[in-house]
Simulated assay, not measured.
Amino acid sequence: METINLTVQRPRLTSGDKKKLMEIFLDALKEMHWTEQTHIEMLPKLAKGAASLELTATFDLHTAQSEEHLAKLVTIFHYLDLQPESATCMAMKELMNKAVAILHNTDPQTLSRDLSLIMAARNVEVFEAAAYHALSGMAAAIGLYEVSDILLSIYRQENETAQILSRLSGWPVNTGG
C-alpha cells in the first residue's frame, strides 16, 4: 500500500497577506455575529414547532449556547479594539429561512416535521461549525492565539450540536470534523 504524505507546507505569511487575511477574518466574524443573533431569534420558533421533547430540548439548549457564542464574539471584537458589528451572511440566511419555512410547510406534531427540522437545523450547524473552524485557523495564522482558542471552543459546541441532531434523527453520526 502506498503512503500518502499529508504534510502541509504553507507559504510564508507576508505583511500584505496578514492584512488581507485580517480583512477576510473580520468580514467572516461579522457574518458569524449576524448568524448568532439570527439564530437566537430562530431557535425558539423551531423549539415551539417541534413535536418531540428531545428536539425541543436540543433547540432550547442551543439557544442558550448561541447566546454564549454571541457573547464570545463580542469579547473577540473588544479584544481587537472594535465595536461588535454584523453583516448578513447570505448562505446562512438561506439555510435559516429554509428551517423556518418547514414550520409553514409541514403539519404540526408529525415525524415529518421533526425530521425536516432536524435536517435543516443540522445543515445550519454544520455550516456554522465549518465557519468557526476556519476562523480559528485564520486567527492562529494571524497570531491571535487566544481568539483562535475561543473560536475553536465555539466550533466544538456547534459540532456537538450537529452530532446530537444526527442521533435524534437516527442517522449515523458523521460530521466530517
Rank of each mutant, 00 (worst) to 15 (best):
M1H: 11
E2Q: 12
T3Q: 14
V8I: 10
V8Q: 13
T14K: 13
T14H: 10
T14G: 09
T14L: 12
G16F: 15
G16C: 13
D17S: 11
K18T: 12
K18Q: 08
K20W: 14
L21S: 05
M22A: 11
I24H: 14
I24R: 05
L26S: 12
A28K: 01
L29K: 01
K30F: 01
K30T: 00
E31K: 10
M32Y: 05
H33L: 04
E36L: 02
T38E: 10
I40C: 07
I40Y: 09
E41K: 14
M42L: 07
M42G: 00
L43C: 01
A47I: 00
G49V: 05
A51W: 13
L55Q: 00
T56K: 15
T56F: 11
A57N: 00
T58R: 12
F59T: 02
D60E: 04
L61T: 07
H62Y: 13
T63L: 10
T63V: 06
T63R: 09
S66C: 06
E67S: 10
E68W: 13
H69N: 11
L70W: 12
A71V: 00
K72W: 11
V74K: 09
V74Q: 08
T75K: 14
I76E: 00
F77T: 03
H78K: 15
L82T: 03
S86P: 06
C89K: 03
C89G: 03
M90Q: 04
A91K: 08
E94I: 01
A99V: 00
V100Y: 02
A101M: 11
P108I: 15
P108F: 15
P108Y: 15
D114M: 04
L115C: 07
L115V: 06
I118A: 05
I118F: 12
M119C: 13
A120E: 02
V124R: 04
E128I: 05
A129T: 06
Y132L: 05
S136A: 15
M138D: 01
A140F: 14
A141F: 08
I142P: 04
G143E: 10
E146D: 15
E146M: 14
S148H: 05
S148A: 14
D149Q: 13
L151A: 05
Y155Q: 03
R156S: 09
Q157R: 12
Q157Y: 13
E158M: 12
E160S: 02
A162H: 03
A162G: 07
I164R: 06
S169F: 07
G170H: 09
V173L: 07
V173P: 01
V173G: 01
N174P: 02
G177A: 11
